[in-house]
Design a binder for these strands. Structure first.
Length: 271
DNA sequence: ATCGCCTCCTGCGCGC
DNA sequence: TGCGCGCAGGAGGCGA
């Protein structure tokens, strides 16, 4: 579920409880997530000071001197700081014990998420090695996007959801960025004008920035590290608004399956 | 290289 | 009330 703003919201929420502190123990209740949880994780992260809690795309990286933990929340994952005496909830698969009364719990009903380990903090995990730039950094700009759309005949929406092109943009924010840019999601990626590429780059940044400010989008079950929802959902222009009126022109918002994912757009505003 | 399709899994809302 | 179906914030891996 979580896209970049939700992952960033989660990262910010857990950082104060981890940075310069130690994980004393890890309890794995469900070893089988998307990939098995590696044994090396348990051996290496415990009882070492955590030096950084970083987000890369939709991954959260927890660093210590031996390497780093990679956490991906998949479609339905969340991380939550809890009192250790509060009962575990259904689908709390992994617990990071932080003190005698505090615990970080990884919950993921669909188990599409993963928790992995990369030994050697200076080496990139294979899952990170081919990622595109961060959308909110300067490396994601007009020329990067133009170069990466060149020759691509796939739908522009699929292109911006491709983590090799730019990381962190999922189904919600792809639809929203394209709406703001007046571009239909099904347009061939290589047929955008320079002006449209420029707009799309700018609007991808603005949508994500605003969503982070609101603590992300809670459609049904996203919660932050304190167990609270995000408030960007009420500002969505098209996502999930099939059949409702476009806030800009009053036409009816439509939906269409593109690349096996539902896409939303305004047929009047988006060309 | 690029694409489109399949897959992993649980939960929920809908229609019958 | 119960069941079956389709759909859901992701994305690696496959064959064409």
């Amino acid at each position: 579920m979580p896209e970049l703003p939700e992952v960033e919201t989660t990262r910010k929420g857990i950082e104060p409880f981890l940075l310069n502190k130690k994980i004393f123990d890890i309890k794995v209740h469900t070893p089988k997530l998307r990939w098995p949880i590696p044994i090396a994780l348990l051996d290496n992260i415990c009882n070492r000071e955590i030096s950084a809690v970083i987000r890369r795309g939709k991954y959260i990286l927890i660093y210590c001197s031996r390497g780093y933990v990679l956490i991906h929340l998949g479609m339905s994952g969340s991380l939550r700081i809890s009192n250790i005496h509060n009962d575990r909830r259904k689908h709390d698969h992994v617990e990071f014990i932080l003190s005698k009364d505090r615990v970080l719990r990884f919950n993921d009903p669909r188990r599409f998420g993963c928790i992995l380990w990369q030994s050697d903090e200076s080496t990139k995990h294979p899952l990170l090695s081919r990622l595109g730039p961060e959308p909110l950094e300067d490396q994601f700009n007009f020329s990067h996007l133009k170069n990466n759309l060149k020759g691509k005949k796939c739908a522009i929406k699929n292109a911006i959801m491709d983590s090799h092109v730019v990381v962190g943009v999922g189904n919600i924010y792809a639809s929203e960025s394209l709406f703001r840019s007046c571009i239909r999601p099904g347009r061939a990626a290589n047929r955008l004008s320079n002006k449209e590429i420029q707009m799309l780059c700018k609007n991808t940044k603005s949508v994500l920035t605003e969503a982070i400010k609101k603590g992300g989008t809670t459609l049904k079950d996203f919660i932050n590290a304190e167990g609270k929802p995000g408030y960007f959902a009420q500002q969505l222009d098209v996502y999930g608004r099939n059949g409702e009126l476009c806030r800009v022109c009053g036409d009816i918002v439509k939906s269409k399956i593109i690349g096996q994912r539902t896409s939303f757009y305004c047929p009047t505003c988006q060309k």
